[in-house]
């Protein structure tokens, strides 16, 4: 019969229309509730109808690997040298950047005139940046990362769209927050939460100390504790991070940080020993 195909097709559109509102009728606007579960279901493979995201009242949080514009990692405020750049101004990111939108001024020591591993200035022209993520992928010091903040519209580009070092710098804890899994993997590869140079230095120092200790014939090996903490670094912190905890006092924090660092070192040493 002529027209049967059209009718069948119309059936599909009606189906879609009903699907879009079916949940509302059945569960009383459940899908607009603030519950995370509902959102995940609605955006998952089980979604039916038009699964509209009610931006800006609700936003799809971006996945960890999402890349928008880059930012530079600096030490946290509670770090012993807060605000220090992780970037060593090695220049690899500027070489690997396809549209060449990274500009780095290598720092020099004013006394000796020799280069120091710290950028004096760092610019990224985000009117050119193609969000490719190469800078983050090839940085040997995990010092440049891709940001998740896409809400950057502006009324004037000349004043804001060349990001300088100040604008680019974000603390390490921010990176931990937006990409816990990746950050943990990277920390694992580096051998600790610290910048790889710091870890290396600490390791050197610890090695020297260990040697001295060995000379004194006092085998200092807090192995069990160290191993446990070391495991903690490597373990996926992912699911736990979201849970907020009550405050802990400053002392404990410091002690823990120390223990953590020691653990990482011990583990590295252990690995070396194998």
């Amino acid at each position: 019969m002529y027209g049967l195909g059209i009718l069948k097709g119309l059936g599909v559109t009606i189906r879609h229309f009903i699907d879009t509102y079916k949940d509302d009728v059945l569960y009383g606007f459940r899908k607009y509730s603030k519950s995370q579960d509902n959102f995940a279901v609605r955006q998952g493979t089980q979604a039916t109808g038009a699964y509209t995201v009610q931006y800006p009242e609700e936003k799809v949080a971006v996945p960890e690997r999402f890349r928008f514009t880059p930012f530079l990692v600096v030490n946290d405020a509670d770090h012993e040298s807060p605000g220090e750049d992780w970037c060593t101004s090695c220049g690899i990111c500027s070489k690997v950047c396809p549209p060449q939108c990274i500009w780095i001024v290598r720092g020099t020591d004013p006394a000796t005139g020799r280069p120091v591993p710290q950028p004096e200035a760092f610019f990224i022209d985000i009117d050119i940046c193609m969000n490719c993520g190469f800078c983050a992928e090839f940085c040997p010091f995990d010092a440049i990362k891709m940001d998740h903040d896409y809400e950057m519209a502006s009324y004037d580009r000349t004043s804001v769209n060349i990001h300088d070092k100040e604008r680019l710098s974000k603390p390490f804890s921010y990176w931990m927050k937006i990409a816990p899994t990746t950050a943990t993997e990277e920390a694992d590869a580096r051998g600790g939460w610290e910048h790889s140079d710091v870890i290396k230095e600490k390791k050197k120092k610890a090695d020297a100390e260990a040697k001295a200790a060995a000379k004194a014939a006092a085998p200092a090996a807090p192995a069990p504790v160290a191993a446990a903490v070391g495991e903690a670094v490597a373990a996926p912190v992912a699911e736990a991070v979201a849970v907020a905890e009550s405050a802990e006092d400053e002392e404990k924090k410091k002690a823990e940080r120390l223990a953590k660092r020691e653990a990482a070192l011990a583990r590295k040493k252990a690995n070396k020993g194998d």
Binding site: D76, D78, Y174, M176, V237, A240, V241, E245, A247, K253
Partner: peptide
């Protein structure tokens, strides 16, 4: 930042 650091420690 502090909040994040604290969370990390707690975890």
């Amino acid at each position: 930042r502090e909040e994040a650091a604290r969370r990390r420690q707690a975890v």
